[in-house]
Every structure is written in C-alpha cells, then in structure tokens.
C-alpha cells in the first residue's frame, strides 16, 4: 500500500512520503551512530579505523547517505521553490543541486564501500 504511493501516479504523495521515510531511517542511524561513538570512544587512528571497519556499519552508513541524498534533494528543492521565483535561475540551481548530490554520493560510496 505504501509502495503504491511511491509511484509516479502520486507525485505529491511520493515526495512527501519519501521525505518522511528517509527521515525515519536517518533518525535511527543517527541515534545508532551517537551511541556507538559514546560506547567505543575512538581516540587514536587505529581505534578509529576499527570503529569504521565492520561491514554492517559501512553498509548502514552507505544506506544512510542514500537517504540523505533523497532527503536533501526534496528539502532543498522546496527551499528553491519558495525563494527563487525566477524559473530559469531555479532550474539552473536545481541542476547544480543534483550534480552536487551525485558527486557526494559517489564520494561517499567510495569511502564507505571501498
């Protein structure tokens, strides 16, 4: 039922729902991350590497970054829609935004998965 709302048939609902779903996932990840930092308290390089080593943590971080990209895309798009009335400038800014998010995504994938 939720899946159907994420299709193109419901453009408004899709964006709205995606923003919430990604927010939820990121919220859980953030709490996990904070907890992990507080428990392990990595202070040296070796500890930090160890902190970052587990495969599950890397994959979680990578998924987090995917959610972050979607969330940021929807959020910043709303900001542009509100404050940039000029259609030409707005579409230009949106293109830059997409480009940036893809670059960050590639960068993050390389960091988390390599």
């Amino acid at each position: 039922m939720v899946i159907e709302l994420l299709t193109k048939r419901y453009p408004g609902m899709r964006a709205w729902l995606m923003q919430r779903l990604t927010a939820l996932i990121m919220a859980f990840y953030s709490v996990m991350l904070l907890g992990r930092i507080l428990v392990l308290q990595p202070a040296t390089y070796e500890e930090f590497l160890g902190f970052f080593q587990p495969a599950w943590f890397r994959i979680a971080s990578w998924l987090f970054w995917i959610c972050l990209s979607i969330h940021a895309w929807l959020g910043i798009r709303d900001v542009f829609k509100d404050y940039v009335p000029n259609m030409y400038v707005r579409s230009l800014l949106l293109k830059i935004l997409v480009l940036l998010l893809w670059v960050y995504m590639a960068w993050a994938s390389w960091l988390f998965l390599m």
């Binding site: 040296t44 390089y45 070796e46 930090f48 590497l49 970052f52 972050l68 940021a72 959020g75 910043i76 900001v79 960050y104 960068w107 993050a108 960091l111």
Partner: peptide
C-alpha cells in the same frame, strides 16, 4: 537543514582524511 547540506563536503573531506593515514588523522 540548509546549513547541514552546505557542510556535507566538509564532513566527507574530514572523514576521508581521518581514514587515510595516521598523520592525516592527527
């Protein structure tokens, strides 16, 4: 939200540096 978006590259950069070598980490 906007502020956090703007610092994304800085976070990625710091993360990459601190993971690369122990000197960079320091």
């Amino acid at each position: 939200g906007c502020a956090l978006f703007l610092v994304l590259p800085i976070i990625l950069l710091l993360l990459q540096l601190s993971l690369s070598t122990s000197e960079h980490f320091e």
